[in-house]
Amino acid sequence: MHPIIKLVSQRLALGFLLLFGASALIFGLTEALPGDAAQAVLGQAATPEALANLREEMGLNRPALTRYFEWLGGIVQGDLGQSLTNKLDIAESIGSRLGNTLFLAFWAAVVSVPLAIFLGLLAVRYRNRWPDKLISAVTLTTISIPEFLIGYVLVYFVAVKLGLFSPLAMINDSMSFWQKLNSIALPVIVLTLVVLAHMMRMTRAAILNVMQSAYVETAELKGLSNFQVIYRHAFPNAVAPIVNVVMLNLAYLVVGVVVVEVVFVYPGMGQYLVDHVTKRDVPVVLACGVIFAAIYIGLNMIADIVAILANPRLRHPK
């Protein structure tokens, strides 16, 4: 078998194993929380009888393991189950919200990834001169400020004072594509500012590392311009570490947007998850958790595979 197929299939198998482990962990943690869905629905003043009845009805009095494997059996068949508190089908409720979250993450990625790599290349080209220092200073500043603060500051100055974009990122199906884009402009900017520094710094470090090598000296002695040396000879060998950090940040864009969604009242996965954690609605939390885990594992696996493919020794064995 070609070594790449073998490596990729190993990674895939490992990914599924990890996903299984993540689901068990999430289930265990929600079990460990004090209180349950029945308690949350009925509130502090509930009588023990009412609680017992509701638990019976919700199926909460059965052993944890049984409930876990029932749920797992459903997942394998593509059934995410029903919400305990509002009896709605989870897959249906998540569907549109996941779409919204991915829409936001996608546009944030489209803006931030090329920008980060370009700034990283620029920083290498003007290493230790003012453009490098300016880029580092600005990106490190934006990563250091909490994203909700950046969010509110942008809402106040850009949306309220300048009236440029909508302060609320509400979107629905009746909006046109451009209206949607206009609506998510501010959260996209906030997310970009948050993830930029990490990717930019990694690009810069990975390329600088490669710049020390003898083949870069060879390229310089061919009379190539600095930019040609960087993008033709240094960049292809720095792809693996850069892709790794890009994927980590993409995963953050999907999974870590909770705060930003709340600030801009964006109808995505983050708000949905936060709501149902307070209600102890385990099936919903589990479903969201597993989807987030799958996205995280999937993106990191892609990073791994790209890193493997970027290695010519594996692509072209002797």
Binding site: Y215, T218, L221, P236
Partner: peptide, 13 residues
Amino acid sequence: YVSQSAAASFNPA
């Protein structure tokens, strides 16, 4: 220029 170590002076990619 021809360097001592061609192995290091050729871009592996």
